[in-house]
Structure formats: C-alpha cells, structure tokens
C-alpha cells in the first residue's frame, strides 16, 4: 500500500437495513473515507476478497449468511484476517455480543450508535 496520505481509506459497510447502511456510509464519506456497501454476509465476503478494504463495519442480523458467520470466515481467511471488523448491532444480549467477539470482531458497538461514535471507533482502529 502506497500513498496512504492521499488515497482515502476504504471501508466496507455491511448492513441489510438500507437507511442505517446509507447513513453510516454518508457520514463516513463525509468524514473522508471511501465506502463500499454490502447487504448480505456473502456479498460482504465477495467484496472484501475482490477489493480488500481497510476496515469492515458489520451488522449481525443479515439475510442469508449472517454477520457472525461472515466475520468468522473473514477472520479465518488469511487474505482478509488482518482487516479490522467493527460490529454494529441492535442485538444487545450478552450472548450475541460474546458470539461476535468469539467470531473475531475487533470492536462491538451497540445500536443505537451515533455516526460520530462509529467514526471515533473507526479512527481508533485505523490509527
């Protein structure tokens, strides 16, 4: 990777709920990131492999392959395991949180989560 100061960091935003995905994407772009979007786990894995992002923001409840499974696979794949994953989920029960951490996520944010809070976490992980 070269020219990091000029090239915006790329973030893969995975969420099946359109408004949330758009909202976070809009704010991250507004904050200077390049954002790609995926709706399902399968799509997220495909895009991450095709164009590896600098960070992945992952929702858990997804149609098809869910966020836990996708996280586990991404963290199991040598090509993608280095990519930090921030889980942002409406699941608030301990079991869900623990499962996400076991799957390999680097941070867990609980919805409602303001875009500013996500931005702070992303910046922290990428710094």
């Amino acid at each position: 990777m070269s020219g990091s100061s000029e090239e915006p960091k790329r973030i893969l935003m995975v969420d099946d709920f359109h408004d949330n995905r758009e909202m976070y994407a809009a704010y991250l772009r507004f904050s200077g990131f390049s954002v790609d979007e995926a709706v399902t786990g399968t799509e997220a894995i495909e895009k991450a492999l095709a164009t590896p992002p600098n960070l992945i923001v992952m929702d858990l409840s997804l149609p098809g392959m869910d966020g836990w499974e996708a996280t586990r696979r991404l963290k199991a794949d040598p090509k993608t395991k280095h990519i930090p994953i921030v889980v942002v989920s409406g699941h608030a029960l301990e079991g869900s949180v623990r499962a996400a951490k076991v799957a390999g996520c680097d941070a867990f944010l609980r919805k409602p989560c303001l875009p500013q809070a996500l931005l702070a976490e992303v910046r922290k992980l990428l710094s």
């Binding site: 408004d19 949330n20 909202m23 704010y27 409406g90 699941h91 409602p112 303001l114």
Partner: peptide
Amino acid sequence: HEFRTPLNAIQG
C-alpha cells in the same frame, strides 16, 4: 432489536 434498528437511523 427491531426497535433499535430504526431508532439507530433516527438518531443517526
């Protein structure tokens, strides 16, 4: 969970 998802968008 279902409450949080729209709330998230509203607050965001």
